[in-house]
């Protein structure tokens, strides 16, 4: 797994995720990165990566909407000017 720091350089994070507990994709996977978003600007997040943790919060066992809420809140919070993603290139078999 790789720890990737994404600085909040744009008003939006700019990623689309698919997956979550009780679906064919057990952990959220990045399916799109939007041009001009913070994720695109950081250029380290890639389509296809599976997100294991966000700011130290594990997404394992979290359903899609819960995982999406955790990521959205980590981006919205004013406490930090960045987000830390723990990602892996491969599907974690659970």
């Amino acid at each position: 797994a790789t720890l990737i720091r994404v600085m909040k350089t744009a008003p939006t994070l700019g990623i689309a995720i698919e997956g979550g507990a009780k679906t064919r994709q057990p952990l959220p996977r990045i399916v799109t990165i939007q041009r001009g978003g913070s994720a695109h600007n950081c250029s380290k997040l890639k389509v296809g990566q599976v997100i294991l943790e966000v700011n130290g919060i594990s997404l394992q066992g979290k359903e899609h909407r819960e995982a999406a809420r955790i990521i959205a809140e980590a981006f919205k919070t004013k406490e930090k000017d960045h987000m830390d993603f723990l990602v892996t290139e491969f599907n974690v078999s659970l």
């Binding site: 700019g14 990623i15 689309a16 698919e18 009780k22 994709q25 399916v31 799109t32 899609h64 909407r65």
Partner: peptide
């Protein structure tokens, strides 16, 4: 586990 995953529903997609 392959069969199990095939019976699971596909996930929705959320833009963040």
């Amino acid at each position: 586990s392959c069969d199990k995953r095939l019976t699971l529903p596909p996930s929705e997609i959320t833009l963040l």
